[in-house]
Design a protein around this nucleic acid. Structure first.
Lengths: 236, 236
DNA sequence: CGAAAGGCAATTGCATACACTTTTTGCCTT
DNA sequence: AAGGCAAAAAGTGTATGCAATTGCCTTTCG
């Protein structure tokens, strides 16, 4: 190849490829079921096939692409059943994190959770969807960390990343912001008084509602009729 | 390279490498923290470095090896905290599977579970550790499948595979076989009567006991004093 | 004598070349 | 005209070579 790959960010070439391809999948630029040709990708990003192959391998491990021996890689196609299964798992994992957080969070962690949560109330009043989504991610990450269990944290973050494409639109539903905050409030209250069971139930309900909100968008997905499956392009 | 790779089993070369290296890690032949040199591994298995690299990438995704850019790969070192975290996660995941199984298993699945469970009683009487371990794996796999949730299944199987090295010795403890069967019996009974909560609690207790049994072995691990961490070589 | 800087060997990362598998296309047969 | 077979083209899997980074060792200066 001729040109440099100077315009891409730092890190190893493979890391950049994982981010680049992963982003295009998550944002729906690459559609589910679409074939990922190694040579084309290599040419597209001006690298050789070797890092492309390694990136595809990692993305396959992440569940974003599917690979069959000697038959190449395709953008993972997520069926309705599998999507439901992932949301269900997410609800259970969040419940575990909330329960453990209620039982194990340090005083500092509890305080930080409470402070940030209260601060986010302003974003609801301002209807600042973008900022609220950022704080929402932070909030949940605090719960995951508060569980003080590295493996649970890994499983939860992994599942969340796989669901990322399907959660984008949740705050576009009218009144979702305020409802989300209220649900957070129930979780926080339970955690502050150390009630693990209540925190877990509240967290599970919270995710279930998000799941249903996303299902609304999935249902009107124009791709659905085509393949009877829902892909990451749902939000385009 | 000169020779063929005909003596290894079928599948792509990378698959074989993953199995070969993974087995050596799981069985403790390769010790935690040990450096995995690409060229040496390639020479050892008579392949080029390319499939070795890809295999190391997959094993890294599995959590069996750790990789740092430009610094090569090493056999993953599992700290006591992380090990405890994984067992804890396993207990929660098994609980979820058992609960869902109680609620969702088909009549056929319930029958098969019951039949196989009853059949395994003979293995306890015969003190057939090897065979019982096989049935034990089958039993738990039935629970994972019975949850009828693909993602939960994936998370559970993944966690189990990462814990595999640490579960080997559990049945070597005196009386563990009979106790294991009795614990299975509680789970099966709860599932048969559709009591999700009871099945979940029983499953959680079951794993917790396994965890403690493994902790016994971990505690006497000779490597422990060396690195203050527990590796897959515990059972050699 | 110790510490830091520079060079050297070893190893990883990427590119390219080759081999094998799969798929497609075109021709021949029925 | 339709179906099947064969050959070529496309694409993946593996091997090897080269560049770049890392860690160690030596050397030199304080």
């Amino acid at each position: 190849m001729s040109g440099k790959r100077s315009l891409i960010r730092s890190g190893t070439t493979v890391d950049q490829m994982v981010r680049a391809i992963g982003d295009r999948i998550v944002t729906g630029f690459l559609r589910p079921g679409e074939k990922l040709d190694e040579a084309s990708l290599a040419a597209r990003f001006d690298v050789s096939r070797t890092p492309v192959r390694e990136a595809l391998g990692r993305l396959s491990a992440m569940g974003l692409v599917e690979r069959r021996p000697n038959r190449g890689a395709t953008v993972a196609v997520v069926t309705q059943e599998h999507l439901a299964s992932m949301f269900e798992s997410m609800a259970e994992l969040e419940a575990i994190c909330a329960r453990f957080s209620a039982e194990r969070m340090t005083a500092g962690e509890r305080r930080a959770l409470e402070v940030e949560h209260q601060a986010s109330a302003r974003l609801v009043q301002l209807a600042a969807e973008e900022d609220y989504e950022y704080f929402n991610t932070e909030f949940h990450t605090r719960l995951y960390r508060g569980a003080h269990s590295k493996h649970i944290y890994e499983l939860t973050v992994m599942t969340r990343s796989r669901l990322a494409p399907f959660r984008r639109a949740q705050f576009m539903l009218p009144g979702r912001l305020a409802k989300s905050w209220q649900e957070h409030d129930v979780i926080v209250t339970a955690i502050m008084r150390g009630d693990g069971a209540a925190a877990g139930n509240a967290a599970k309900d919270h995710v279930s509602i998000v799941s249903e909100a996303s299902a609304v968008f999935a249902a009107v997905d124009p791709m659905k009729s085509e393949t009877d499956s829902i892909g990451v392009s749902s939000y385009k």
